[in-house]
Design a protein around this nucleic acid. Sequence first.
DNA 1: ACGCTCGCTTCCGTTGAATGGAAACCGTGC
DNA 2: GCACGGTTTCCATTCAACGGAAGCGAGCGT
Lengths: 258, 258
Amino acid sequence: MRANESGRSVTSRVLSILEAFETHGPSLSLSQLAELTGLPVSTAHRLLGELHAWGALARDDQGRYHVGLRLWELSQSAGRRLRDTARPYLQDLFSLTQETSHIAIREGNEALYVDRVYSSKRVPRASRIGGRLPLHATAVGKVLLAYEEPWFREAYLHGDLEARTVRTHVDPAGLADELAQIAEQGYAITLEEARAGACSIAVPVAGRSDQVEASVGLVLLSTQGKTLTRHLSVLRGVASRIEAAIARYPSGYPRQRG
Amino acid sequence: MRANESGRSVTSRVLSILEAFETHGPSLSLSQLAELTGLPVSTAHRLLGELHAWGALARDDQGRYHVGLRLWELSQSAGRRLRDTARPYLQDLFSLTQETSHIAIREGNEALYVDRVYSSKRVPRASRIGGRLPLHATAVGKVLLAYEEPWFREAYLHGDLEARTVRTHVDPAGLADELAQIAEQGYAITLEEARAGACSIAVPVAGRSDQVEASVGLVLLSTQGKTLTRHLSVLRGVASRIEAAIARYPSGYPRQRG
DNA sequence: ACGCTCGCTTCCGTTGAATGGAAACCGTGC
DNA sequence: GCACGGTTTCCATTCAACGGAAGCGAGCGT
């Protein structure tokens, strides 16, 4: 191995290629990938060839690379149980309210959207399946934060609180009070904090150990910001159904370590 | 390198680990992975450690490995355009018919389900997002096959035609006639051929080059097998909307080479 | 039409990351 | 307490990986 990034494993190089699609995807050229990964072009070319042959990546007519469907298929098993459990109820929630419904879990400092039900009618595009948004800027995220352990919440509030819109709450003391209120009242509301024009209401979904494992919410146009709580009972009803289904998970399914 | 699988690259070893989850997932122990991949246990352990540290795999309290959410997030970009384009219309189709709707593309000899809209009401579970079923055993698959090039169709019909249920059509000559009729009438129907208790109707969705790129369909209980064609007009309407949306894709988006 | 540039592809002598058997460790069952 | 099976760690050996150089092809400007 030459001095160029000596000590770097092949696995780490391959994963750095995949990482480049996270940060700069969805379509990247060979040269871009070499630059983003710090690999010489010939090395990148060789590793990309193997990933492409297997189907982890695809290549278009212009020679640009994308994530391949095989990786999509393979990874459907991740989070599938929660998604499959929640989906019918998100669908019911959508049918009852005709508003975009979604469910998120906490991943690090962000809300990760594991599913979402919406239609061609007005869709304030605040979330996307597989997408992430900062906890403090979303209703589902505020719920997840409100029910987290105090040390985590305090560490989060001491971190860098990004203002996603001009309406995002970023004052730590103000957010702490808000989260305490959310824990008391059992729901969170955001008004154009994640995205201009969109407001949201969310409630917690408890897991098997009675800890809050996810949060389910609705997204509406900001014109309906004053009447969000009218959806509370149906949201809570749906959350209860999801919790009951989670409680019915087969025994012995362990919590993830990683 | 020792004689054990000499000449095998690190990348191919890593990919063989991921492949093990395709075929034997979703939860595998270290020893199982070593066996499935043909790697010595210590080699598997080392490579798994790297995949786990990055988030490609997760490990539970019992030390078993699963596909990690990071891979799921990363791979959402694969097929996203078709999924995001089709979803609102699948949702409309579901709202109008209250039946499970799905969309599939052809991947090799199978129908790959890229999206599906369903609810907690009666759901004949024939398909699953990211799942595959043989082309000849599904309505969407028959549509895709009917509009394929003759050489592909003939090669497919000369292959091994699996009987998924006792009702699956597996006679090559009979299937050839059926596919010709499907191409003429513009829709396909299956009656308990993919799964007992479920029947389905599907129509084609043309891509930009007027070739059939996908197929959209409905799944119903087999008790409604005699009245499937009453859904034809709404199915065709939805297919047209999806085609129009595909036609509006930004210019220069190349077909995949892959 | 031609020359230049840039990105991609292929080649191969050199070398250090990867190898995997052995030993140690750990948890479970008897 | 012991045996067993699975997991984890170590390290001497070696060959898969490296990446610079050269070649190729497409696109662009003159």
